[in-house]
């Protein structure tokens, strides 16, 4: 690894997505030269990357990049990487990265190492079989594309002396933009499990959709997202967007609170890489306790109100 291109995505006018800062941190720790690459973003948002040690950002400029197209972005990034002879591309394995990273690997005839949770100067570690095993993977090609599991690499402040923003004009035509995003429907008013630092999830132990107010109240106290097990999503108690697990979302929050969730393998597959896990279940033999840092063996209907009250007291709410 000599020269890494890190793909940067703006979150709003002032900042980049947390996953972009995570990617910068992971790249910086390899000791290689780093260049940020973006296709959009305000100067303020791009310059915010300096806080994490980035010194150079290049923004691709082209009319075909005004409306997001995964194919056009992949082409632009690949052309830029070739133009500066970069040997490494680092992209978050979020929804955007899952579309562009494999494409870029084909364009650059590069090895693709997806969903890494450790990155070193010449290889990476990644979870496989839903986290039941991990593999050490090396690339056999001169160029390598790595995608990073979100929320695993903690973005560390390391201010750079300054940051310069340059531009790059890719050579694109309509054939590079055969798929386009025409609109984005945001889940207004509530935090998504894939973006949350704390998740409070409920399972069948809640006994009915009306009792999810217990989960919502606790999530409200903690500023957390509400999650759900497959059983309650299949039963129609909660929307699919909240499902954590194999057929739902894979999450790695700082704290995952599992309430009335027994811990089926499919659920563990989606949350076992959480940094800390608190489980509340009345069955002391429930598998969820085997992966938990903290456990309360008890009835969720009795435990959750007490837990919420204690947390409120601690947080001064």
């Amino acid at each position: 690894m000599k020269h890494i291109i890190v793909f940067l995505e703006p979150k709003d006018e002032h900042s980049l997505k947390r996953t972009s800062y995570e990617a910068i941190t992971a790249a910086r720790q390899t000791g290689a030269q780093i260049t940020g690459f973006a296709v959009s973003g305000t100067e303020t948002a791009l310059k915010s990357a300096a806080e994490y040690g980035l010194q150079n950002v290049v923004v691709a400029q082209h009319p075909l990049l005004h409306q997001y197209s995964s194919t056009a972005v992949s082409e632009a990034l690949s052309q830029f990487a070739s133009s500066v002879q970069a040997d490494t591309i680092v992209i978050s394995a979020n929804a955007t990265g899952k579309e562009i990273a494999p494409r870029i690997s084909i364009k650059l005839q590069a090895g693709f190492i997806p969903d890494c949770n450790e990155l070193s100067n010449d290889s990476a570690m990644r979870p496989v079989y839903a986290g039941k095993a991990k593999v050490h993977v090396k690339s056999n090609t001169p160029i390598t594309v790595y995608s990073l599991r979100p929320n695993v690499f903690t973005a560390k402040s390391h201010p750079s002396a300054g940051i310069t923003i340059g531009s790059f004009t890719p050579n694109l035509d309509e054939s590079h933009a055969k798929v386009k995003v025409i609109s984005v429907l945001k889940n207004e008013g509530h935090l998504d499990v894939s973006e949350a630092d704390i998740i409070v999830s409920g399972g069948r132990g809640l006994k009915g959709p009306e009792h999810f107010t217990l989960i919502e109240n606790l999530a409200g106290t903690l500023g957390a997202a509400v999650g759900a097990s497959r059983a309650v999503v299949d039963a129609g108690w909660r929307p699919h967007g909240e499902q954590v697990g194999q057929t739902g979302k894979t999450v790695s929050p700082s704290l995952y609170i599992a309430c009335g969730i027994s811990g089926a393998v499919q659920h563990l597959a989606g949350m076992s890489s959480s940094k800390f896990i608190l489980a509340i279940n009345k069955d002391k033999d429930a598998p969820i306790f085997k992966v938990a840092d903290y456990g309360i063996v008890g009835d969720v209907f009795e435990v959750l109100p007490v837990l919420n009250q204690k947390l409120k007291a601690l947080l001064g709410k």
Partner: peptide, 22 residues
């Protein structure tokens, strides 16, 4: 193959495992 698996391991659980009553 463009990538090679060098080793596979089972993850080591680093959980605190403090389970208590209610």
């Amino acid at each position: 193959a463009r990538i090679s698996t060098m080793a596979m391991q089972l993850p080591i659980s680093k959980r605190i495992g403090k389970i208590s009553g209610d």
